[in-house]
Design a protein around this nucleic acid. Sequence first.
DNA 1: AGAATAGTGTCTTTTAGACACTATAGT
DNA 2: ACTATAGTGTCTAAAAGACACTATTCT
Lengths: 309, 309
Amino acid sequence: MAAMKNEPSQSDIFAYEHPFVTTDVVALSVGAGQQDNYRKLPEKHLEVLLVQRDAEPFAGQWALPGGFIHPGQTAREAALSKLQEKTGVPEVYLEQLFTFTEPDRDPRGWVVSSAHLALIEKGSVVQNEGSQRSCWFAAELGLVHESTDHYPEGRVEHKVYELRLSLQEQGEKDQGQPGETSDAALPGQAVITARVEHVITTTRTLRADEFAILDDGGLAFDHAKQIVYAILRLRNKIEYTDLALNLMPELFTLTDLQKVYEVILGRELLKAGFRRTVKDLVVETDEQTSSAGHRPSKLYRRNWNISLS
Amino acid sequence: MAAMKNEPSQSDIFAYEHPFVTTDVVALSVGAGQQDNYRKLPEKHLEVLLVQRDAEPFAGQWALPGGFIHPGQTAREAALSKLQEKTGVPEVYLEQLFTFTEPDRDPRGWVVSSAHLALIEKGSVVQNEGSQRSCWFAAELGLVHESTDHYPEGRVEHKVYELRLSLQEQGEKDQGQPGETSDAALPGQAVITARVEHVITTTRTLRADEFAILDDGGLAFDHAKQIVYAILRLRNKIEYTDLALNLMPELFTLTDLQKVYEVILGRELLKAGFRRTVKDLVVETDEQTSSAGHRPSKLYRRNWNISLS
DNA sequence: AGAATAGTGTCTTTTAGACACTATAGT
DNA sequence: ACTATAGTGTCTAAAAGACACTATTCT
């Protein structure tokens, strides 16, 4: 992906000028933090997979995994293979998110990108041996500003989201010396703060949505926008689908599942009600957790014998 | 949009080979049929806008409006301008539907298409003066086959949809001689029957959707798939959004609105319940219908002072 | 008068929200 | 014994489904 011819004479035989097409993958998962009390359950957080670019443009900056679509491939196939290359996961949930076509979204020229949303169970990740560094960043999305302007013909709402990404140490499982110099010698930023604006225009006849990057926080391309878009989509779909189960391991407790919902929705849920609403999505097993410092809990698995929609 | 270079040596410097990108618009509206009894309300039906291609490939066949994206445009802008060219409507609801990237979807070569869904109020259409013939086709989507195969690792569901498109006479408003030779001298098929299969694969770990054309019924490219996709999306979103209001004129009766919901969902709704659920989406006006052969009904307009989502 | 639609009232059922209570390993 | 989580019961409020009833205009 080196040089590219740049901007030929506009509005000329334009039928023959055509964009490059890439795919980007917003891979989300839910990770667990430190367990600070021997019997307290660890906090969970949403995570997104980023790779550090080694080529221009944006060399050294963090970006979503992705790349050019090869001839003979579909966008989905390209996204899937990029993702497998970075994570080693053979089977993931993957859906098309949105195709970003702003003409100036890539400094190299005209490049449209078909963005995908992937949901990955963190435990299934085999650490990659790819050429680029890839890391999971904890992601927090917060609404930091909201305003509405009223006009006689309609109104315009602005919502500003702040996306905070912070690098997770990889050595979660090997439990290394706690709080030590584990994050030394890491190039690139370890905390990224981006701001993305969601503009909703409502007139008497229609409603339109637009997203704009206010501050990319150092993320490459329009990836801040893509990540926000992905999280909002997940937040929305989790309410009426079983999407969240793609983030769970084979066996899980209902409390774990509830925490996944909570971390995605960004609010707490009531236990009794939650269990009522998910009861058809899961199947009880004979297994239990043990040695947890408190009452053991039943383990469930996904119920794949349901037909939604 | 004439000749295109064809298929260079695969898997060579592929970073430099890139697809053409087009946009297609599935423009849907709701039209009214004949009023066969002076006091009976006319039937409504879903309609889709098609244009007759005058160039190869698929010359003479019906296709969705669309075309290549020009440099400097977004896909949305391209879709919007194509649509305005065909309908003359200045403001329409338009959302990105899906980007179709199957490498063989265009016989000319590698062409990906960013499909859009537009919702148009039929009355706002100014008949076009474009070079191509464009017509509204009544659209009916029916599920004609459904089967499930069970495997130890999951299951595969097949749903076969039949899409029936039939050409509507343009002269609806000028009320011409009923049932006469009005549809003479029309080239191209007046009824198109296509079949599209929806394959849902569910395994223990994930669920994936695929669409395949079984019979394009004479529609160009993969447009049968795009239309089915669009109708299913509309059917789904109408349940939790106010999307249907984009299909209504400025003033409308609740019965009209209900018929629009019914025609999209393909089932009847109960009046009392329907009015309860839409009451926040609309605002009552002082106006009424008149000389209808029965009790006049109140006219409503869209309530754009609500925030969904 | 009678056809056809407009509009409302009110039951029942289902779903969602809230909260309080009991249960049980592990140190 | 105490802590922290596991799990259930039940009351209430809100939403959805079903159906019956009244209201009104035009031919």
